[in-house]
């Protein structure tokens, strides 16, 4: 079995970053969400949120659709099939780590 920190290092850092994990979790629970919703959810500034979304878009995990509502730009974000698989895999990985971490704690306690 890998050591605790080696297992942590296997997590995909692109997804595991808290803001991006929140974004992918939200987008996996709907068809699409707009920029304002994701900004409200994460509390990030426009610049920071754009930067995170660009990274996810470059990795092919989300798609960005720019529209206009009247004269106001409206950006819609949608998770891709790859993104959905990646986030589900990530949650499973986190669950496995969590259950193993309980084992580490009890081993330390008994030792």
């Amino acid at each position: 079995m890998k050591a605790p920190f080696e297992q942590l290092a296997t997590l995909d850092r692109l997804i595991h970053e808290p803001a991006r994990l929140s974004l992918l979790t939200a987008l996996s629970a709907c068809d699409s969400a707009d920029f304002l919703y994701l900004q409200s959810l994460t509390g990030l500034s426009k610049g920071n949120l754009s930067s995170h979304l660009s990274k996810l878009e470059e990795a092919g995990l989300v798609t960005v659709e720019k529209q206009f509502k009247g004269k106001t730009p409206h950006t819609l974000l949608r998770i891709t099939g790859t993104g959905r698989e990646a986030i589900e895999r990530h949650w499973e990985q986190l669950e496995r780590l969590r259950s193993r971490a309980k084992g580490w704690v009890s081993e330390e306690g008994s030792g």
């Binding site: 629970a29 709907c30 068809d31 699409s32 969400a33 707009d34 920029f35 304002l36 919703y37 994701l38 900004q39 409200s40 819609l76």
Partner: peptide, 12 residues
């Protein structure tokens, strides 16, 4: 206007 828009998935 305050929190943004979410479109539900077909399954939802």
């Amino acid at each position: 206007r305050r929190f943004g828009e979410v479109r539900s998935s077909q399954a939802m």
